[in-house]
């Protein structure tokens, strides 16, 4: 699905991302962990062609993301509020995103029914613009809009950080079930080691722009990660 070769990005002489080689296979659920400033969000932005790499390339389905726009057809991402059009109501935003993927309003409505529990009654028909929603609810809108696109590649930046405990559980459940049904490739970052080891098949540990550990999740993974982050 994704092939990263020799990619580097630095700001003012500080190397933020430096990955010689990384492959992500179709259907994999990959978790990215690391402290603040490790370069997780920068890596995601590079994958979405939102910043230009100093060197190297990222291929998505064998096509360079910086050269072709084909990846936009099958990639959905939510990194922060900068992905939401904040003056729309949630419904308007969902219809807009749906339209970009040739989904009619009926399709969108039908799809959103599945999110009733996740939304907990505070998003649809709330009479608010997205900018007036709480951060957690904005995040839910972002995640739902991603899944609505039925993406082959899903990228989420710290999806658990702003959610309440029940929503976290629901999201974990969705992230576990959805890829199994549709061969979706998922790439998420998280500070929550428990959740990330529960969801992901494979964990990448990032430090100062480098991937210093690449482990397949086993029963010992959580302990291994906790050892690393121990102060």
């Amino acid at each position: 699905m994704i092939t990263i070769t020799d990619i580097t990005k630095s700001y003012n002489g500080n190397t933020v991302v430096n990955i010689p080689q990384l492959e992500i296979a179709t259907g994999e659920i990959v978790g990215l962990v690391g402290n603040n400033g490790a370069g997780k969000t920068t890596l995601f932005r590079l994958m979405l062609d939102l910043i230009r790499a100093d060197k190297g390339q990222i291929l998505s389905k064998e096509k360079n993301v910086a050269a072709s726009e084909d990846w936009k057809n099958y990639t959905a991402a939510y990194l922060d509020e900068g992905f939401l059009i904040n003056y729309l109501t949630p419904e308007e935003y969902f219809y807009f995103v749906g339209k970009l993927h040739q989904l009619s309003r009926v399709d969108v409505d039908e799809f959103l029914q599945r999110f009733e529990a996740f939304f907990d009654g505070s998003i649809l028909n709330s009479g608010k613009y997205i900018r007036d929603l709480s951060k957690g609810n904005q995040f839910k809108v972002g995640i739902a809009a991603c899944l609505l696109q039925k993406p082959e590649l899903l990228i989420l930046d710290e999806p658990f950080a702003n959610l309440d405990p029940s929503s976290q559980m629901r999201l974990i459940k969705m992230l576990k079930e959805l890829p199994a049904q549709s061969r979706m490739t998922v790439f998420i970052s998280s500070h929550d080691l428990n959740h990330v080891t529960e969801v992901c098949h494979r964990i990448l540990l990032m430090e100062k722009g480098r991937i210093i550990k690449d482990i397949d999740t086993t029963a010992d993974t959580l302990q291994e990660l906790e050892m690393y982050f121990e102060v």
């Binding site: 062609d49 726009e69 900068g82 992905f83 939401l84 970009l100």
Partner: peptide, 14 residues
Amino acid sequence: SSFFDGLMASNISI
């Protein structure tokens, strides 16, 4: 500007 990231990552060709 407040949602340019999202716009550029979404399925809209330039």
